[in-house]
């Protein structure tokens, strides 16, 4: 049982790293769906002795929501707004992998001294969740398109889900709130579609000419 959770955790980090290094949006969505699928399996292995209804429910809802619904919406979005599939990342393939590796190291180093309430089911859950979050953040940093930002955000969200699982018994309702976050993401994607943000978020930078003088309001 324990080893299965560990496998899921390591797969989550590995897939997050792959998302970071992938340059095609379709590929990123597929990888994200795979990661969500593995994560939704984790609740099933949480309690070794018996499978509670809550575990089952959680696993099922997460799987439907993250591994099926959100990727489906994303694919639909891509078709709908005819987005170019190639993207120009700020960091190249090699550099992304190197940065990602450094972030994973940082995550493991930090989690050594992080004390949590409650007993952890596996010693790998905590560092892996931190690493997933940081890698998702890195994805947001290195990509410029609205769609890739959403994907990076959802990888972070997966990391948060894993983190919440480690506190499954200590803090009730944490995961349920995470599911609410998923629904928020779904709405977020809908907003992108509706507002036709098919390229990137607008640059919010004024020109130097119109810079107001001291004390002047614009």
């Amino acid at each position: 049982m324990m080893s299965l959770i560990d496998v899921c955790c390591i797969l989550a980090v590995f897939l997050a790293l792959t998302v970071l290094a992938t340059h095609r949006i379709v590929g990123m969505i597929k990888l994200f769906a795979l990661q969500s699928f593995f994560l939704s399996l984790v609740p099933l292995f949480l309690h070794a002795e018996a499978l509670s209804g809550r575990d089952l429910m959680l696993s099922l809802v997460t799987m439907v929501l993250k591994a099926a619904l959100v990727p489906a919406i994303l694919f639909w979005t891509i078709r709908h707004i005819s987005m170019r599939s190639e993207i120009k990342p700020i960091l190249g393939f090699g550099a992304s992998i190197l940065c990602g590796a450094a972030l994973i190291a940082v995550a493991f180093w930090i989690s050594l001294s992080l004390r949590l309430p409650g007993k952890l089911t596996s010693s790998l859950v905590l560092p892996c969740s931190l690493a997933t979050m940081l890698l998702g953040f890195m994805t947001m940093v290195t990509r410029t398109r609205a769609m890739t930002q959403v994907l990076g955000y959802m990888v972070i969200e997966n990391g948060i889900f894993l983190f919440a699982l480690s506190l499954f018994d200590a803090m009730p309702l944490l995961i349920e709130m995470g599911i609410l976050l998923d629904i928020f993401v779904a709405v977020f994607i809908m907003a992108i579609v509706l507002n036709h943000i098919n390229e990137e978020f607008e640059r919010t930078r004024g020109s130097a000419v119109s810079r107001p003088k001291w004390g002047e309001s614009q």
């Binding site: 700020i90 940082v106 890195m138 940093v141 290195t142 410029t144 640059r203 919010t204 930078r205």
Partner: peptide, 20 residues
């Protein structure tokens, strides 16, 4: 670097700094 990304880098660095 684009503006949004630059701010995200700042947030990321600050987050890591705080944690460490």
């Amino acid at each position: 670097i684009r503006y949004t990304q630059l701010y995200l880098v700042y947030i990321l660095l600050f987050l890591i700094f705080l944690l460490v």
